[in-house]
Design a protein around this nucleic acid. Structure first.
Lengths: 341, 341
DNA sequence: TTGAAAGCGATACCAC
DNA sequence: GTGGTATCGCTTTCAA
């Protein structure tokens, strides 16, 4: 049988002080002389006192827990480069501060709503991360209604929620400039799931960058961030009477799908068409040709999000944060425009 | 400002009964007449009463939370086919029963130990999942010492912990039989990280299956479950004076690495060498040739693990469970042995 | 500065 | 059956 837990009362008794003094001493609150504090700390260590999280939660009205609801199909999750790093980053930030992460997965929209409602009703978490935000996402209104502290990841500039962002613009601009410098004038775009905010952001960045380079947008295919979507886009774009000489894809997975499809159509990459991705997944370094892409840093995003959320929970306010830009990584899937095009 | 929470006292007052009766009524405990129970439930609904999880935790000595500590590098996680499905499965099982999952990530061994210790000291979770078990894993002793209920996933047959297993034997036997039927006599093996229990299990299964088919084991390369490891194994095995005509890899990722390396050495797959993987990751269906592999079902494992862990927490004992066997999926990376070999 | 006592919101035991 | 109350282990007022 487990020995009875050492409680704050044991510490108080042993140190010959009141429990309130122990509490103040151990939580660094004022109201105890330095000498008693030292004695209390000493005794607490001797006794191996660990304050009960449950009791703290009940009396302190905090769960010391934050939540992440992943609105995605588990199968999609398998190929997702974001969450592993993001979660690791969150952990780095919250663990030292005594918080833990509750993770929930749900594919369907209504399901996700229910998760948030339940999380809030149970007061299981003190705050939540909002990722994969959609345009006019109803979840934003939901967490506001629920009064749950929340930080948004890569939300729009007009986010009503505190936000941490990694700007895609810089990386995409670099990519477009890189392609332009290689002589490409007809640059197509393979988008991601259109209602997702970051799909829009990326596409807008692409348009803006083209304009800056004095180019007009090439054909655009609406994709879905999947391998198969990228392959389908290749089938469409490369069958065009005047096919693009370069393609920017909304993520690496679709870029890889695009490349595979192109090659199976006998169209060489990057000989006939240059392809660039976005994310910098590991597979991008393994495929042939190795993928030119924009490197994002989910771990930094997670770390900053975690820090922000806890600051928000504990102080009630935080400033938005921007992590260093996503940057272009040039590999082998982009090359000078073929002669005669 | 958030309205004051509706408590059990409010419900009791409104229903004109004692709080203890409300508690009994709402938790389906005996000791209340059917009529008062109905009235209480009615009132609770009217008032929108949601019992406080925090108070329940403190008085009921349960956190209604279970933990998963992932002993892995976040970068590796990115390509891992297991956790997405596994976590989704856990959730399916625990959410309806009122539990949530705390996820922690840690790469270094001592770090992981500390996580478990902290989880236990804080009593943050009521139980934990043990995955990626190593041979003579010290974590098993740790959770026993810590007295934390735990279920082991794919542990050895002599596990001191309740376990849920998916047998790799059947699938690997099928694979070997498939290769044997194609005429292969010289079947190599590319292993996984050697101290991991499931690496051993898979290699043993391979040996046993070969023996059953009357074949002697081909060359074995110790891998590490990575793409690069698979590629390195190909470089080694295919440079042998008498190279194998077929290779079984400990997982799909290394199989894909193997294939890529083989082809870059000008050795056709499956023309010159057949390659089979293990896991059935999505990429396996995208690569050319599409990968012959053994399909595992992490989601089922998660679901059963979740169910078991909660049963264990609530009843103190459970029986081991075996989910349906991993099965062979034949695609294009395996073919008849080339003539003359 | 220190200590006593009132919450926090349930569960569970024990009278009646 | 039902109602009162001690208990879980802290935090936080408020007197002394």
């Amino acid at each position: 049988m487990a020995a009875r837990r050492v409680t704050i009362i044991d510490v108080a008794r042993r140190a010959g002080v009141a429990v309130s003094s122990v509490s103040s001493a151990l939580n660094g609150r004022p109201g105890v002389s330095e000498s008693t504090r030292e004695r209390i700390v000493q005794v607490a260590n001797e006794l191996g006192f660990v304050p009960s999280l449950r009791a703290k939660s009940l009396s302190g009205r905090r769960a010391f827990t934050v939540g992440l609801v992943v609105h995605r199909d588990p199968d999609v999750l398998e190929l997702d480069p974001f969450f592993g790093g993001f979660i690791a980053g969150i952990e780095e930030a919250i663990d030292p501060r005594g918080y833990a992460l509750v993770l929930q997965v749900g594919a369907r929209g209504d399901e996700v709503h229910q998760r948030y409602r339940k999380l809030a009703a149970d007061r299981r978490v003190d705050g939540v991360f909002m990722v994969d935000l959609e345009v006019d996402d109803p979840l934003i209104a939901l967490v506001q209604e629920l009064q749950v502290p929340a930080v948004a990841v890569n939300s729009g500039d007009d986010s009503p929620l505190p936000a941490v962002r990694q700007d895609a613009n810089a990386g995409i601009r670099e990519t477009v400039q890189h392609l332009a410098a290689l002589g490409h004038r007809r640059v197509a775009y393979v988008g991601g799931r259109p209602h997702l905010l970051h799909s829009l952001q990326r596409e807008n960045a692409w348009r803006a960058a083209l304009a800056e380079s004095g180019l007009t947008p090439g054909p655009v295919v609406t994709g879905d961030f999947t391998y198969l979507g990228g392959a389908a886009a290749a089938a469409t774009l490369l069958a065009l009477p005047d096919p693009p000489t370069a393609v920017m894809c909304a993520n690496d997975l679709s870029a890889i799908g695009f490349i595979t499809q192109a090659e199976s159509m006998g169209i060489d990459v990057p000989g006939k068409v240059s392809v660039a991705g976005f994310d910098d997944i590991q597979f991008g370094t393994y495929v042939r040709p190795a993928l030119t892409t924009v490197r994002t840093t989910p771990r930094e995003l997670g770390r900053e999000s975690g820090r922000m959320l806890i600051d928000l929970i504990e102080t009630g306010e935080v400033d938005d944060v921007t992590v260093p830009d996503a940057r272009l990584v040039v590999r082998d899937s982009t090359a000078p425009v073929p002669p005669g095009r």
